[in-house]
Design a protein around this nucleic acid. Structure first.
Lengths: 206, 206
DNA sequence: TGCGTATGTTAACATTATTAACATACATAA
DNA sequence: TTATGTATGTTAATAATGTTAACATACGCA
């Protein structure tokens, strides 16, 4: 009977880390507790991951993958372009509300440094690519001028910022979706809110 | 010659905490290091603050005060209502970029729990009040219907979300203001970006 | 069979937040 | 002035953390 060598420690650690993170967030994830819960020695995780950041990076990459898949699904819906932007923003916010800790891990300050984890950077870039392509609708428009492209990029950033702001404010407890209406409706309302930007300040192009 | 009793430890601690936080953020602020730098014993801070969260709360309250003052200044400018909203958003984002750690402390996950520090909650509420009053322009409109009020509240939330999203994405390194144009211009561009929300999704009122 | 590498382990180190137990200065009432 | 209580220090202890070093075992493969 082997005294150790569980055979699958890496995956067990990852799954356990997932459930801890879901409850307590990146800060609450302690390597030693993780090891204890996994039933493995306190130094074992270091054989499979590059320390705490390594584990967080692995979890973040998995989360980004799921996030990206979800956004892509939404982006594929047969919708008018403007409505698709709204739907994307709603999916974005819903993900944040359903998985606040993952969302924080992906975007927040405790995210492992992108330049130390290239896979993490790639995963993050890929999600932004989905957003950008969907919002600017690059696929159907090979004939854009440079100015159009800059414009499209700005529109993507603006849409992203709006969704991101709602998501962040909600999960950080600064605003609370009203209890008497479905969250979807609340998010749609905010995303579609027309701010009445004066023409004098609007982008001169278009 | 007295062996201790510096006379002003609380303020010295606060100022030292400020400079540490500015460089390293809430997570990097260690009570022991703070005490060492202040030239005081490691347990001394506990005589003046309710532990680490207490210090963070005090710093956050001061930061919120400055933040609020700045927003209020902007809100007082003689501008058309819509342009004032843009200016407020810009001031909001500029504060975040100039003081990212303070901004994080105010809004992020490491903020001490609001229900344990009523003064902190009051300070935060007061800032949101400024935003809300300015965006909805409540002062000049005593004649609003209930629906109007709800609408105004939503407009405030939407404007706030947009600015908050830009601020958060920038200080978390997800987007970078272009180097070849002033930050102000970048922020204005994003805030004023017209997303082309379809009429079918716009708020039926108005 | 033997050897190298991957995967475990235990033990140690440095750091952290917090609290208890004790010491000193100061303010104020007698 | 003296006495006493409170505010403000200190040192020392506890419990937890990330990380690394030194050592042990299992497995894959020549």
């Amino acid at each position: 009977m082997s005294k150790y060598h569980h055979g699958d420690v890496r995956n067990v650690l990852l799954r356990e880390a997932e459930t801890i993170l879901r409850k307590e967030g990146p800060g609450g994830l302690s390597l030693r507790r993780l090891a204890r819960l996994t039933g493995v020695s306190e130094a074992a995780p270091y054989r499979h991951f590059d320390g705490k950041d390594g584990i967080l990076a692995a979890v973040a990459i998995a989360a980004l993958k799921r996030f990206g898949d979800r956004l892509e699904e939404t982006a594929k819906l047969a919708l008018p372009h403007e409505e698709r932007i709204i739907a994307l923003g709603a999916a974005y916010v819903e993900f944040a509300i359903e998985h606040p800790q993952h969302f924080r891990l992906i975007f927040g300050r405790e995210r492992p440094p992108l330049d130390q984890y290239p896979d993490l950077r790639d995963a993050a870039d890929s999600v932004f690519d989905i957003l950008q392509r969907s919002v600017t609708n690059l696929d159907q428009r090979g004939d854009m001028t440079l100015a159009d492209a800059a414009n499209a990029y700005n529109r993507a950033l603006a849409a992203w910022s709006r969704a991101h702001g709602i998501a962040t404010l909600v999960i950080d407890g600064m605003i609370s979706p009203p209890l008497d209406q479905p969250i979807q409706q609340f998010v749609f309302g905010l995303l579609a809110e027309d701010l009445g930007i004066p023409a004098s300040l609007q982008n001169p192009k278009k």
